[in-house]
Amino acid sequence: MRRRTFLGMSSGLGIVATGIVASPARAGGRRPDLVVAADGSGDHSGIQAAIDAAPAGAAVPFVIGVRPGAYRGQVIVPRTKPLIELRGLGRRPEDVVIADDRANGTLKPDGTPWGTSGSASVTVDGAGFKASNLTFANLFDEAAHPEITNRQAVAVLTRADRIVFDRVRFLANQDTLYVNSSAAGVVARVYLRDCYVEGDVDFIFGRATAVFDRCRIHSLNRGSAPNGYVTAPSTDITNPHGLLFDHCRFTSDAPAGTVFLGRPWHPSQDPNAIGQTIIRRSWIGAHIPDAAWTAFGAWPWEDARFAEYRNSGPGALVSANRPQLTDSEARAHTIAAFLRGADGWSPERC
């Protein structure tokens, strides 16, 4: 695997050519309340320090501008800090990198492992969080740590409602983006627009309602068969809306037919985790085989809520192995239907 170097940091995360650039139409907004700068020229030099300085229980967004640079260390946005916005102030998402480097099996100072949730570089529990024009990464180097077998290494974990990521990159290997909720049966909505997500095993997973709008989903080539799984949803049976990909691009450098679109995750063998992944009007590369979905242990993919609709590309096959939505069903599985809820949330219109 080739290595990526960005802003003075090197990691074994593969190669990226996102094509994401800052959009002048959306890169503005009101002036930041605080500025973070790695060189000490801002109000704070670290991301967590700026979040700690944000007001608790805010009723209006609190904007933290982040100047170009690399920011290392775990970041936690607590439940008491809603409506925080992290805004990259560079020209491109690559200019601001927020990262850490622990895995599930990495040991804490007390000798116990961090676990999958604890591995997250960034954890978001504050409702109404927004991030734009920056990169989140988990730099855990699998090759450098053969002694660690539990290699889940999360870049971002979300557990709150009404979260927006706009022109954001998420980089890791296994379990890159963990879109979850505070508890089983609790709905938490996440909207991702023009984002880039990269990984290999189950790298988009969880029970949240998450909409990927015009995103690029890139599967790394890990040099083994299978090369990985794009999604591992654990949507609660009471939630009609899980993971939705609309007008996205599924790409990879992996050999043809070696990556699955998804498998159903049942945390702690929960029978009520009936995962949903829907991919509609998207381009799918040749790395996806005809048998695009697969079992997760004893849980068959056929019992999950997996479907496609009017996709294109060499990996967008229509067969008995690839359930397709009807036109009528597709009208009920739109961005608006997934996000509106009882409060009429519509971030895609902003």
Rank of each mutant, 00 (worst) to 15 (best):
A22M: 08
P300E: 05
V168P: 11
D39L: 02
L192S: 15
I15E: 14
D161T: 13
R216D: 11
T231Y: 09
D141G: 09
R2V: 10
T235H: 09
A232I: 06
A292Q: 07
N180S: 14
A59I: 03
D166M: 01
V122C: 07
S328P: 04
S234N: 08
R167A: 13
T112K: 14
Y196R: 00
C350F: 14
G313M: 11
P314F: 08
T334D: 05
R67F: 00
G128I: 03
V124Y: 03
N239A: 12
V186K: 12
V96W: 05
F6P: 00
L325I: 02
G344E: 07
Y191C: 01
P240G: 13
A307N: 00
D52Y: 01
A25K: 12
A22C: 03
D303F: 02
D110A: 08
S328Q: 10
I217P: 00
C215H: 00
I98Y: 04
E198W: 06
I98G: 06
P93M: 04
R67H: 01
R222V: 14
S11M: 11
D101T: 07
R281E: 15
Q174F: 11
D95W: 10
D100Y: 04
D202R: 13
A54R: 02
L157E: 14
V201D: 15
G313A: 11
L7D: 12
V164W: 05
A304N: 01
R281S: 13
P300A: 11
T116A: 11
G262E: 07
G262I: 04
R169C: 00
A103R: 09
A342V: 11
A99E: 13
D175C: 12
A332Y: 00
R281C: 03
G73W: 12
A298L: 06
P55S: 03
V211S: 04
V186C: 03
W265M: 08
E94C: 01
A131W: 05
G115W: 06
L317F: 03
D166A: 02
Q174S: 15
E142G: 00
N321H: 12
R26P: 05
S219L: 14
A291Y: 04
A120R: 05
R26L: 11
C248K: 07
N272Q: 13
T158M: 07
H333C: 12
L220H: 05
T18F: 01
A332Q: 14
V197G: 04
G42L: 05
E348W: 15
P78F: 01
V186E: 09
A53D: 12
F250Q: 07
